[in-house]
């Protein structure tokens, strides 16, 4: 197209963003699962929480 020396418009690297996105996904899923199990264990309704 143009004869100018343009950057090719491609993202180089960026693995830190990828790892952050997967990391926050893992943290939220594990954290929420843990919160569910802990809250269930805290209720004494006479039934054994599994």
């Amino acid at each position: 197209m143009s004869e100018m020396a343009m950057p090719e418009g491609v993202i180089a690297g960026g693995w830190s963003y990828v790892l952050s996105a997967y990391g926050i996904t893992a943290v939220v899923f594990i954290g929420y699962a843990w919160s569910l199990l802990r809250r269930r264990a805290a209720v004494s309704d006479g039934e054994e929480p599994k």
Partner: peptide, 8 residues
């Protein structure tokens, strides 16, 4: 941004 280019 890095993706800036002609036609974007």
């Amino acid at each position: 941004p890095a993706m800036f280019r002609e036609g974007i």
